[in-house]
Amino acid sequence: MARNQEALTRIRVRTRRRKAASTVAISMGVIALALVTVPSVWIVAQVAWKALPHMSWSVITTPGVGLGGGLENEIVGTLMITFGVAVVAGFIGVMSGIYLSQFARGRAAGLLRGASEVLAGIPSIVVGYVGYISMVVTFHWGFSLGAGLITLSAMVVPYIAKTTEVSLGQVPSSYVEGAEALGLKPGQILRTISLRSALPGIATGLIVALAIAVGETAPLLYTAGYSQNLPHVALTHSPLGYLTYAVWTFYNEPSTRAVQLSFDAAFLLIVLVLALIAASRIIVARASRHRETA
């Protein structure tokens, strides 16, 4: 150790500088942490600040009229689209996840998995463009719930598939082996053991996917279209409104009421998304507590 006395001296001289550099680095890290947390809090607070003073029941219970009225048509539309995505993307996504975790092998599995992940990375407006050209124009569906929810589903299926696959993969193999030893058939094992214990994870993935669907705009603009009437329960030939559209069209209008509606819609969106995130967290917390005690 003392072989190189000279070097040791040099190091001692540098120590103070190194320590100082480290402190600076740590404080920059803390600043970075602040920068990461500030925008989300700022946005939520700002939107609430601008929306709450004039929020009233009538905003939720009356449909839009020109640049005024309420957001009932958009709220109902968003709920319909989200419900549709839950059904369509939920089914395809969960089934896809089951296949990837239970049956898929080798290269084919890699290909399917890869395709799914890549699909999730396609810019939303590109998916929207294709949805418009194919369903709205070529299939003559017109602006419609069907075109909108299929376009959105294409975007969130990969997410649901991934969480389902991962959740199923995390089912302790001892559960499955035990069930096999008891003579349960594969179908029963999947239903009663694997899916049941993976359920919290699957539900969480589905909920977060819905949160993404609630907040999307670009894929819906040219597929679901827009209408200030209350949406009809029809898959095709009936455009409908949704909350993100209200934010996008009203914010820039030279009317106080329109800008207020824009913030109201943004506020409702944030509340919906927060509620969904909270739900997913509660499910995870419950599931992990359950697992620990089990």
Partner: peptide, 20 residues
């Protein structure tokens, strides 16, 4: 009658394609 303010472009294209 269902109305939608989507912009003149969509209006013309949709009338041409029979979408509206």
């Amino acid at each position: 009658i269902t109305t939608a303010g989507t912009g003149s472009g969509t209006g013309i294209a949709d009338a041409a394609s029979g979408t509206v």
